[in-house]
């Protein structure tokens, strides 16, 4: 029992210890131009139990409509080790609009701006992806791609898969206490 409590407290401590980059203030660190390779490298080294990666653009209506649900599910689960990575597919010269949108949505961590050709970006991020947006991937703590949503997705749909992966992680680490028993619904 003591061991379980220790592991639980340790996990809470780790998940609440936000990395320095999570509080980006300067614009250069807020929307970072990056290739798919660079983004994937960071996703795999994210030190998180779940990473959601979302490709969006300011002018993509379903992306804009979906955005608050992604932010809500992130806020709800971030203390359990869930991270959210936004990749803007806005056209060159539209970064200011993307930054304004991210700030208005309350995004207080760094995001990315797609660099290089679409084809290389799409195939590197996911060879099975057609390139349609919005597109969202769920990665587990080991950097495995576990789930993919194409098109506008709801809070409920995101939450279901996040919970499944979190609970699976709990079971594997010996934390058999269900999420519900920890006061979460």
């Amino acid at each position: 029992m003591k061991r379980h409590i220790f592991v639980f407290v340790a996990l809470l401590f780790i998940s609440c210890d936000a990395p320095k980059t999570d509080r980006a203030s300067n614009t250069d660190e807020y929307l970072i131009p990056a290739t798919a390779e660079e983004i994937l490298k960071n996703v795999k080294n994210a030190d998180a139990r779940v990473v959601l990666v979302n490709v969006w653009a300011t002018w993509c209506q379903p992306c804009v409509e979906e955005f608050p649900d992604l932010m809500a599910v992130y806020q709800q689960y971030k203390e359990q080790g869930v991270k959210l990575v936004f990749i803007s597919a806005d056209f060159e010269g539209q970064a200011d609009g993307a930054i304004a949108f991210l700030k208005a949505q309350g995004v207080d961590f760094p995001s990315y701006l797609k660099l290089r050709s679409d084809r290389a970006f799409i195939n590197t991020l996911d060879p099975n992806w057609s390139g349609a947006i919005p597109a969202t991937w769920l990665y587990d703590s080991e950097g495995n791609k576990r789930y993919f949503w194409l098109g506008k997705t709801s809070h409920e749909q995101f939450e279901k898969q996040i919970r499944d992966v979190l609970m699976e992680g709990d079971q594997q680490s010996g934390l058999h206490t269900p999420l519900k028993a920890r006061g979460e619904t």
């Binding site: 993509c60 379903p62 597919a89 679409d118 390139g131 349609a132 919005p134 506008k152």
Partner: peptide, 10 residues
């Protein structure tokens, strides 16, 4: 076969 970013069909 090629790919490009695009809007998801509504």
């Amino acid at each position: 076969e090629t790919k490009a970013l695009g809007c998801s069909i509504k």
